[in-house]
Amino acid sequence: MNRPLAIALLSGALAACGSTPPIHHYTLGPLPPAPAAAPAAGGASLVVGPVGVPAAIDRLHIVRQQGAARAEVSDEHRWAAPLKTEIARRVALEVARRSAYGRAVAWPQASVADPDLSLPIDVQRFEADGFERVTLEAVWTLRKGGRDVASRRFAATEPIQAPGWEGLAAAHGRLVDALAADIVAALPARP
């Protein structure tokens, strides 16, 4: 074999070994349509967070359960931002859209120095069971001036409607929207 041909073949083989699959990033999906009677932009203030998530999912890589004791951590499919950040942001947006708390923001923030209420959320389980369903279990607490005003445990399961990673991300988003609706239903009408 001549030298230039051997170098070309070797270069091609090395290039093939070095290629990596593309990385896809996901959010919790599009927001649902705004309610017909959306509240005014002002209103009471609420800080959503901090949000705690289990260490197994506290990463950018999307994790799916594959049986009772095995989890798949995807290298190619990742969250666009840390999941706890995405949850806080989405809940804050939904609370602002659906309640009198028009100044709801995600923690950590600097725009509301002394909020009317704070809303820490402890996510205890947020699991994708293959491409079948996603389950969310969380405990949230409304606090005013360091005193608990309301607290609930939320648990729901959402089927993945479209097979694949986008459908999985959208199911996560629908569950966070359901969590936000649960919180909105418990918010005091006036802080």
Rank of each mutant, 00 (worst) to 15 (best):
A40S: 12
P82E: 02
A110Y: 14
D129P: 00
A41P: 12
V149K: 09
E94T: 12
G146K: 12
P163Q: 15
T85D: 08
S99V: 03
E127V: 15
G173Q: 10
P21W: 15
I7D: 06
V91N: 09
L179G: 10
R103V: 14
G29N: 02
P191F: 12
V51Q: 01
V139H: 07
G173S: 04
E158W: 07
A181M: 04
E94S: 14
V123Y: 03
V134I: 15
G42N: 04
I160Q: 00
D122H: 09
Q66S: 11
E94M: 13
A40T: 13
V123H: 06
A36Q: 05
L142W: 03
P30D: 13
A150W: 03
A56D: 14
G167R: 07
A80V: 11
G173K: 04
A169E: 01
R133M: 10
P39N: 09
A6R: 14
L168C: 12
T20R: 15
E94I: 14
R103T: 11
A178G: 10
P191D: 04
P50V: 11
G102F: 10
A110D: 08
A8N: 02
A40K: 07
A170V: 11
R125P: 04
P4G: 06
L10M: 15
R59C: 10
V91Y: 12
F126I: 14
D129A: 02
L9Q: 05
A36S: 11
I7S: 04
R98Q: 05
I183T: 01
A189Q: 13
A34S: 10
Q109N: 08
L14H: 00
V91A: 13
V184G: 09
P39Q: 11
I23R: 13
P39T: 15
D116C: 06
T27C: 05
S45W: 03
S74I: 07
A169L: 07
T27F: 03
G67F: 05
K144D: 01
N2W: 03
R153Q: 13
R147N: 04
A38F: 03
Q66P: 02
A189N: 10
W107A: 13
V123E: 09
A106Q: 01
A162I: 11
A169G: 05
A13K: 00
P108T: 11
G145S: 09
E127M: 15
I57H: 06
T20Q: 15
R59H: 11
P163M: 13
S99A: 11
D122P: 09
P32K: 02
Y101M: 06
R133H: 14
A171G: 03
L46F: 11
A69Y: 02
L31S: 08
